[in-house]
Amino acid sequence: MRPFDYQRAERLEHASQLTRPEGGRSIAGGTNLLDLMKLQVETPDTLVDISRLPMAGIEDTDDGGLRIGALASNTATAVHPRVKADYPVLARAILAGATQQLRNKATTGGNLCQRTRCYYFTQINQPCNKREPGSGCGAIDGIARIHAILGTSDQCIATYPGDMAVALAALDATVEIAGEGERTRRVPVRDFHCLPGDTPWRDNVLEDGEIITGVTLPAPVGGTQIYRKVRERSSYAFALVSVAAIVEMDGDLISRADLAFGGVAHKPWHDPRLSDHLVGSVPSAELFDKAADILLDTAQGYGENDFKIPLARRTLSAVLAHATGTKI
């Protein structure tokens, strides 16, 4: 690990000040950042310890929703009575990721900011436009088994690796961000992560000196919530494809279908056309198949990950069938 200066932030504004200069990074759980520092993928000059700032609370909001502090651990969130009762898709997504040891350290903010597990990104002797802009993408025409099929660019085909944010995207949660001085802003989770485009080094919309302070969930809705994760072993593996679904029926018709997908893109993938297609219709194998056509109309495989296209189709159908009680 390269030498760095360690500072403990006493206040939020202090943390923002310290992380603003290039080379400053905030650290909380540290499970992803320290791993990358050991690999010299991340080489911050200054580590700003924000872990003791008072941002670990989980509280009800005035409109019946829930606010999860940026420093709430993944464990604290997954076992929270309201999360289990009202937002089970979030508890399920968190529990489907990592291990108990990691979830005990991982935080809401850090999990949103975790970096891709692309093999070329984590090996500093390989080309990677995300880690070293302009060096090329090793995964395109390379080893691309875990890579994206939607929203890719000719610069980068990495995926956002997390589970929690996929559930947050389905729930249409909002990220609260503090910046310089008193400046704060709110960004829907669905808009928080970026597509690679021609700026693949940019994972999300955070600017220098900005720090996530929390995530708010809207008031709970009815229906069935499912997080289905397909992976190469039954525990402690990243998603090849995952689906977070909140589906509600009104009689024979689908009245809600909020869906988000993991493992397929540089961000938790949310396509509003799916809800438009599904809501108001009677569930059937044909309807689900057409939904998959819509989801995947721009999908592109890169050889080794071609299998993700049919896998996403089948996982979506299986989740919709389960949620609506339909035989397919």
Binding site: G30, L34, D49, T75, L102, K105
Partner: peptide
């Protein structure tokens, strides 16, 4: 794996100064 405040964590992925 060790217990910090009763919670299990990976001691390799955390800085002692924290």
């Amino acid at each position: 794996t060790v217990l910090v405040g009763g919670m299990r964590i990976n001691s390799c992925l955390t800085l002692a100064v924290m």
